[in-house]
């Protein structure tokens, strides 16, 4: 087999995505950025003599989220201990192991960053350089190559070209007002609606039992989305503290629901074992007994009202 001679040396490892990968290669006089969709490769070349600057910026530290993802993966994996069927064990074990692997790899790779390459005509995001560690390795390799082609820029030279660059640290940027949105309000409103549902369920168990899991799931999704989206967008504190507390109560509700559902499934199995016809749907499942229902409705009422009041008072005042 004839060996394919190449002028390129690998600069970064492949950064793989769903649809392909991207990678940086170094030739004697240019950098090659390869974007591959597996079936087609696209090339962008940057002459070493034309590169004006490389800027690396770390992105926000996501260690708590990464640890939370790892914890969730471990919990998911441990489900295989409580599942009886072999297929279930294999499913939870395999998917959990994969999730743990990804989470650990994400933590091990370190903090994320963005790396931009500037030339006179372009500002290119170097997607393969996405972690601080790989960025440092990339800079260590590329800097001597660029300096060999261009020389170095002394601080005197930088000072000489400084007047051409207008921005200084003294020029504070104008504050960009960001609307905090109404997601928290929607969540607390949903708490109140669900509280009513839980109470009505005690009166009409067959009609509302199938609705509650859906609305509870909606609560959970909106809550997680609101917490994740908050960032610097929303300066309010109390509403998010209430959300975290609500998350704990929701977990308690989820445990109660899982317990009652397991009990219901057990009774269905028992009935089928005795040769009796099993109920066709979940109509026989009582999601909450009386006491848990009062608790579920009560905390939702309190959280809903307190959250709406807090959201009202903490909402930043619009300035003209």
């Amino acid at each position: 087999m004839a060996k394919n001679k190449s002028i390129y040396r690998k600069l970064t490892p492949r950064r793989r995505g769903i649809g392909g990968f991207s990678q940086l290669w170094l030739a004697s006089d240019h950098i090659l950025l390869v974007r591959s969709s597996r079936f087609v490769e696209q090339y962008r070349r940057f002459a070493l003599a034309d590169i004006q600057a490389i800027v690396v910026t770390p992105l926000a530290d996501h260690t708590p989220w990464q640890l939370a993802a790892l914890g969730a993966s471990i919990v998911w994996t441990l489900v295989f201990l409580v599942v009886d069927s072999t297929a279930g064990k294999i499913f939870f074990g395999a998917t959990g192991a994969i999730a743990i692997g990804f989470s650990m790899a994400d933590i091990a790779l370190g903090r994320r960053c963005r790396c931009y390459l500037h030339t006179a005509v372009t500002r290119e995001l170097l997607t393969p350089v996405s972690r601080l560690r790989s960025a440092r390795a990339f800079l260590e390799r590329i800097r001597p190559a660029i300096e060999a082609a261009q020389g170095t820029l002394s601080f005197d030279q930088i000072a000489a070209i400084a007047p051409a660059v207008t921005a200084t640290p003294a020029d504070a940027p104008p504050e960009v007002p960001q609307a905090p949105g109404y997601l928290p309000e929607a969540l607390f409103g949903l708490f109140l609606v669900n509280a009513v549902f839980v109470l009505l369920m005690q009166r009409f168990p067959n009609e509302l039992d199938n609705v509650l899991p859906t609305t509870f799931f909606g609560e959970f999704v909106i809550l997680i989305f609101a917490l994740a989206r908050r960032g610097v967008r929303d300066p309010r504190r109390l509403v998010y503290a209430l959300m975290v507390i609500a998350l704990l109560f929701m977990s308690w509700d989820a445990v109660g629901l899982a317990r009652s559902f397991t009990h219901y499934m057990g009774s269905v199995m028992e009935q089928s074992r005795r040769g009796r016809p099993a109920p066709p749907s979940l109509t026989g499942w009582v999601a909450f007994e009386h006491a848990p229902a009062v608790l579920a409705a009560g905390w939702r009422m309190v959280a809903g009202v307190a959250g709406l009041v807090a959201a009202w008072f903490e909402r930043p005042v619009k300035t003209a």
Partner: peptide
Amino acid sequence: RCPVCGEKIVALVFPAIARAR
């Protein structure tokens, strides 16, 4: 540190930046 977002930036600049376009 970036004066705005506070992240620690590394900006490597080379002589090509001073070259006429």
